[in-house]
Amino acid sequence: MSPEDVTRGPAARPPATESPVGPSGVVPLLRTEDLARSFGGVFAVAEVSMSVARGEMRGVIGANGAGKSTLFNLISGHLTPNRGTISYGGKRIEHLAPHERARLRISIVFQTARLFAGMTVLENVMMGAHVWSRHGFFEAALRLPRHRKEEREIRSKAEEALERVGMTPWAATEAESLPLGQQRSLQVARVLCSKPALLLLDEPASGLRAEEKESLAGLLEQLKAEGLTMMLIEHDVGFVSGLADTVTVLDLGRVIAEGPPDEVTQDPAVIAAYIGEGRGRAQRH
């Protein structure tokens, strides 16, 4: 990356001339254009342009530090890009705050569980419903009809989501006291309760036992069949290959390959990035 890349601050955004229509002619659900984000002058995401179609299951792989989690944080709004654009359903979203993007039903499952301590498992899942329920302080304080109706909906949707991840027996347990695997399932239940349109999963299978991994894969399979658009970061290439329609490979913040899983995993550049770890990098670009 050149020094001028570093000096271009967040203000240097390209004009909004891009067409929402992707190369294939269909409007993709998510599209990033020349997305970049640096930390102290080092670009974690350097120039990522990619688009994800509706109903697609996209795998994102890459070595440590390839920029996968940074990319997710840019999409979910937890980080703002230095430059580049993100369109979602044809609308630019890179200026929106995380809670506004959550309301557009972009839901994220973080690598490390971000649970609400001091709340039960069920209450944690109910928080997922915040994005699609509307009643506020006033209606809640006076128990107005909308509050009652929505609270019933929130509870039943949360119970349904808990059921789906097989955690109904732990509904009244304090979330923080759960073991790691169940904390992950709880996070998945929470995003399910949020009725997501785009689900970002940051290494959901890491640290899970074999049978937990299997049941997670089964659940993701089901969600895919229901037409949910998902992006999945995963270290375990076998896990991604089994699920994803398309895999994007990142290295040093750039897309180095993209395509069906079995093609991409045969790509010499990808093999070099995974096996060559650092040595072969200068030649590749």
Binding site: H99, A102, F110, L115, F116
Partner: peptide
């Protein structure tokens, strides 16, 4: 408990 986590589930 966590402002960042609350934001990520859509709480302003």
């Amino acid at each position: 408990t966590s402002e960042a986590a609350a934001e990520s589930v859509g709480v302003p």
